[in-house]
Simulated assay, not measured.
Amino acid sequence: MLQAPQRTALSGPALIRLLARLADVDVPESRQSLSDRLSQWLGWTDAIALSSALSGTPPAVAAGARSFGSAEESEYVRARSSLAKTITGDSVFAADRRRHPAHASAQAASQNAPAEPAADYAVFRQRYLSIQQSMEMAIGNLRGRLRSMLAARTPAMARLAVVDAVMERALSERERNLLAAVPVLLAGHFERLRAAEQATLAAAEPAEPAEPAEAGESAESADGAGSNAASSAASNPAAPTPGAWLNVFRKDMQSVLLAELDVRLQPVEGLLAALRAS
């Protein structure tokens, strides 16, 4: 089987749970509170800026601010949908449907060759990093626009906008470094899936070669053996499909990217909630 084993249930974002399952590790629940964890992540300059934003005089609010409405909601929906389509529609992550699985198995059995060419993880890693950059840019721009709208609402909302700006500056580098480690974790999943299929295919090979045929029947027997192997592979639904592991990995990588998109959008969703309530 090419499915990762079930691990101990873990709470938290779907991204963390998914990575724990694909990396085949048990991740203990953190005993630290959010404030304790943030105190380790924020430098002293960040702490000063955050303290000033929370305790200082709220920024002045300009008169005649544009009201929040459906246009901003629609912009968020468009941005989210566009990024999701970038992930699900990417050709690198598309399943290989050029050959029917039964035909691929039959071809591999008759030719004693893999149905899928050697895969290079570097291609997947580079595409993952490229999509991460697209998400960071698009979401950062949307977050900045919503923050500007929030700053023009009320003094309390203006203070919240300043706090959000401080937190983005303080945590962006750590967030970038942590998320850059995701494709490193997926490299191990890539290799485990490939190794599992190779082991399955090796176990399915005949233990001993067929007895040599008589000279007069060699050509006919060879053709018959090849046809029988192909027919058996095509008619046996349990026969391993060479290259199937790569489609499993593509789907898993898409799932991780979509889960990462949800995590990246959380600050934007927080700003939207504040604008709706203001």
Score class of each variant (00 low, 15 high):
Ala181Trp: 03
Ala187Ser: 15
Ala63Cys: 03
Met253Lys: 00
Leu146Ser: 00
Phe93Val: 01
Leu193Phe: 05
Glu75Ser: 12
Ala203Asp: 15
Ser70Val: 11
Ala187Pro: 02
Gly64His: 10
Ala204Tyr: 03
Gln107Gly: 01
Glu214Tyr: 10
Pro240Thr: 05
Gln6Ser: 12
Ala71Trp: 08
Thr8Gly: 15
Arg66Leu: 13
Ala49Arg: 11
Val27Cys: 07
Val263Arg: 02
Ala165Met: 01
Pro242Met: 10
Ser35Ile: 12
Val92Glu: 03
Glu220Met: 13
Gly270Pro: 00
Asp252Leu: 07
Ser82Met: 07
Val182Gln: 04
Leu261Glu: 01
Leu15Val: 06
Ala4Phe: 09
Asn228Tyr: 15
Pro237Trp: 08
Ala94Lys: 03
Thr86His: 01
Ser227Cys: 09
Arg98Asn: 13
Asp46Asn: 09
Arg66Ser: 14
Pro183His: 06
Arg21Met: 06
Asn177Ile: 09
Pro242Cys: 11
Leu193Met: 11
Val123Asp: 12
Ala222Pro: 06
Ser130Phe: 11
Gly270Ala: 12
Thr88Ser: 12
Ser105Lys: 00
Ala202Glu: 15
Ala102Asp: 15
Ala113Pro: 07
Leu18Gln: 09
Leu146Val: 02
Ala219Pro: 02
Leu129Lys: 02
Leu34Pro: 04
Ser91Arg: 13
Gly144Arg: 00
Ser130Asp: 12
Ser110Gly: 05
Phe93Arg: 01
Ala239Glu: 11
Phe124Met: 04
His103Leu: 12
